[in-house]
Design a protein around this nucleic acid. Structure first.
Lengths: 214, 214
DNA sequence: TCCTTGGTGTCAGCGACTGCCAAAAGGGTC
DNA sequence: GACCCTTTTGGCAGTCGCTGACACCAAGGA
């Protein structure tokens, strides 16, 4: 019963999101009011806010879902794979969404980047995904070698660096055709150029203030 | 005359910012209204918005100034220095501000990170600084070797990776004492771990869709 | 039938922010 | 001092995002 309710609730959310996105694509994000969105799906403004915490949420909620997909992808990677390669594989999730057949997500991404407040909110969501990813990489390092002390500092930086690569690749690809292959090539190129030479994530961390003895 | 007016305008901005920061530190960002800030400096809310575009601007405006400082630092670095080292040197600007004697900026940084909307706005500002930095690095690459085609994709990724390092270092340092030396050590550790092996920024870029002939 | 439960609309309100207009506050000239 | 021009200011009304409170209605179960 709870799951059934959740299902219908999710269906309403999808209906709202589609109507809202249509309006955003047609008139722009700032030029669309919540009242208009609510009217488009035939509900009150108050009810809109029962499904989405904010106007921005309609556009950005999908990032949370993509984050979950990304974590699932990470779980499917072999434990002994270098982090850099695992991250590269995870990013295929983003690429797949941004280059889907309809081109809808790509158009929405352009809207996001054209609106500073939306971009800010997106960066914050991505930031949260990065934090979780760093934590999970640390957990994987421990799972791989129990007793190891993961270097959370470098792990965070590593995840951030990888995200810098995909961010640059997406940006570059959105200027051009933005096909999946092109975006993947851009990402490969950037990540190859920045690949860390030594395996990172464990070892002489500074987290505790002391250098780990060899 | 124009400069004199600008000067007094800047003085008012400083007065507002100090009063606002005091309130933020005492009650929190969300719990402080613009009316309270305006009342604290003895002006109307309407006038407040003549000096700052938004409530967030009071806290984040300094990032634009620090960005300018950072660019100046970059200009003082030798052209033939590897980008990674130039960036490391530039980050001393941030470290200096975050670890100044009063500890005010450090406290403000904690407020920023405790408020999602503020953090989002900060990330967006940093994002803009990164973009400008990547552009300037590209210009330096051309200045160093006229005729070279800078690889903007890798350059953007490189700057983003460096910022990921300082972000991780700051985060780590803010959990502890957060002295200047500690923060610098964290940053050095992260940047050494992620240092790109080959000189980047020029060469076989994918920007144009074709691989540059050797 | 009653009662609970979950979704809905309405309304009133707050806070950030803006446009508009009229009142001050400076500053130079006669 | 009187005049004028420019800049700055406050007040007011209004928009928009968002929230709490309340009453209403439908479905389902005892």
């Amino acid at each position: 019963m709870s799951s059934l309710r959740e299902l219908s609730r999710q269906a309403v959310r999808v209906r709202i999101a589609e109507a809202a996105e249509d309006l955003f694509l047609a008139k722009g994000f700032n030029e669309t009011t919540v009242d208009e969105i609510a009217a488009a799906v035939g509900m009150s403004q108050r009810s809109f806010f029962r499904y989405f915490a904010s106007k921005e949420d309609v556009v950005l909620e999908k990032f949370d879902r993509q984050g979950e997909e990304l974590f699932a992808r990470l779980n499917s990677r072999p434990l002994d794979e270098p982090e850099w390669d695992s991250l590269r594989s995870c990013f295929d999730v983003f690429i797949a969404h941004l280059t889907d057949d309809t081109g809808r997500d790509r158009a929405l991404q352009e809207i996001i980047e054209s609106c500073p407040s939306l971009l800010a909110a997106q960066l914050e969501r991505v930031h949260r995904i990065q934090e979780q990813l760093a934590q999970r990489l640390a957990a994987r390092a421990v799972a791989r070698d129990p007793g190891a002390i993961p270097d959370t500092l470098v792990l965070s930086a590593l995840v951030g660096a990888a995200f810098a690569c995909i961010q640059a690749a997406v940006r570059q690809a959105l200027c051009g055709e933005g096909t999946s292959a092109q975006m993947g090539a851009f990402l490969d190129h950037a990540m190859e150029a920045l690949r860390p030479l030594a395996p990172v994530g464990v070892g002489a961390g500074l987290s505790t203030g002391v250098t780990a003895e060899r």
